[in-house]
């Protein structure tokens, strides 16, 4: 297993390198640069800025310069948030996103699986229809609608919760963002679980288990659920990567200090170094989480072995 993990990590290095290279050149294809503002700068000033940030060099030189720095752990200064380096920006924001994302993921996964199993066991009952109806809604109503509606109800009208901001890190501040972040994923997990559970409940080994007279809890909880969880687990990797690295919509709406908005702001501001930083971040997350998913596979499904 250890060998498997090591070889997977090693083989992911080229992947990240290719992603970095492609992003480096693609962001430079976008028209305009970090210093093209709505109110344009004088050409002399622009020249000074380009010189300070090495943007007056040929792109290949900038690329080599950048790679050299990254190899030394330096992701460069942000071109737009000028008082900070990219590493500072991302490392300051990441813990907030991780806390938020972890809660959201937890609720989405366990809530989703529980609802999905329940619905599968009562297939075609009113409870099933109700749950699946709600989850379809959760999945289709975008979070920029759910968020403001919940805020209007619970923060503005009832004044039970704050409208936003991390505040003291008080859990009251996190309730709404976590709900908004987890709801769409919870809906997906519920539907996925329901579908695969229905299939699993009809599988031969589950029928056999039933025939042997095993208690219902063990039939459903062990034999059916194991098989039923496989699609859920495959979906978990990429979802975890995106949920844990934050969401610009949720962060903007609730004024939270997470890392998600840097993905969008970096690109819109042509903040080249910040874009690269976020690209590396998400690549690492995807690689690591997919690895974790593969390891979980091996535990859940004995047929899969990585040796």
């Amino acid at each position: 297993m250890l060998r498997f993990i090591l070889s997977r990590l090693l083989s992911s290095a080229p992947t990240i390198f290719i992603v970095m290279t492609l992003s480096f050149f693609m962001i430079r294809l976008a028209p305009g640069g970090p210093f093209n503002l709505e109110r344009p700068l004088q050409p002399e000033v622009m020249a000074n800025l380009n010189a300070v940030y090495h943007l007056d060099q040929p792109v290949w030189k900038q690329y080599i310069f950048y790679l050299w720095n990254v190899l030394h752990g330096d992701f460069g200064p942000s071109f737009v948030y000028k008082d900070y380096t990219v590493s500072e920006l991302i490392l300051q924001a990441l813990p907030y996103s991780l806390v938020l994302g972890a809660w959201a993921l937890l609720i989405a996964v366990f809530g989703g699986i529980a609802l999905g199993v329940y619905a599968a066991l009562r297939q075609n009952s009113w409870a099933d229809y109700l749950l699946m109806g709600i989850s379809a809604l959760g999945n289709t109503v975008p979070n920029f609608v759910i968020g403001p509606v919940l805020t209007l109800i619970f923060a503005v009208s009832l004044a039970w919760l704050p409208t936003g901001s991390w505040g003291n890190g008080d859990f009251r501040h996190l309730v709404l963002p976590i709900i908004v972040l987890s709801l769409p994923q919870l809906a997906v997990f519920a539907r996925l679980t329901r579908g695969s559970m229905i299939e699993a409940l009809r599988a031969d080994h589950v029928r056999t288990a039933r025939a042997y007279g095993l208690p219902a809890r063990s039939v459903v909880g062990v034999h059916a659920l194991r098989a039923g969880l496989m699609p859920v687990i495959s979906y978990l990797g990429p979802v975890a990567a995106s949920v844990l690295t934050g969401s610009i919509i949720v962060e903007q709406m609730f004024s939270l200090p997470g890392v998600g908005r840097y993905f969008v702001l970096g690109a819109l501001n042509r903040d080249y170094t910040l874009v690269m930083g976020t690209v590396v971040l998400i690549s690492v997350f995807i690689v690591v989480l997919n690895l974790i998913v593969d390891i979980i596979y091996a535990f859940v499904d004995p047929r899969i072995r990585h040796d």
Binding site: P148, T151, L152, A155, V156, A159, P162, T163, G164, S165, Q252, M253, F254, S255
Partner: peptide, 15 residues
């Protein structure tokens, strides 16, 4: 925050 709708809600909530 630059989310003007969110800011208006926060103002309305007295924040």
């Amino acid at each position: 925050s630059e989310d003007q709708a969110a800011v208006a809600r926060a103002f309305e909530a007295g924040e």
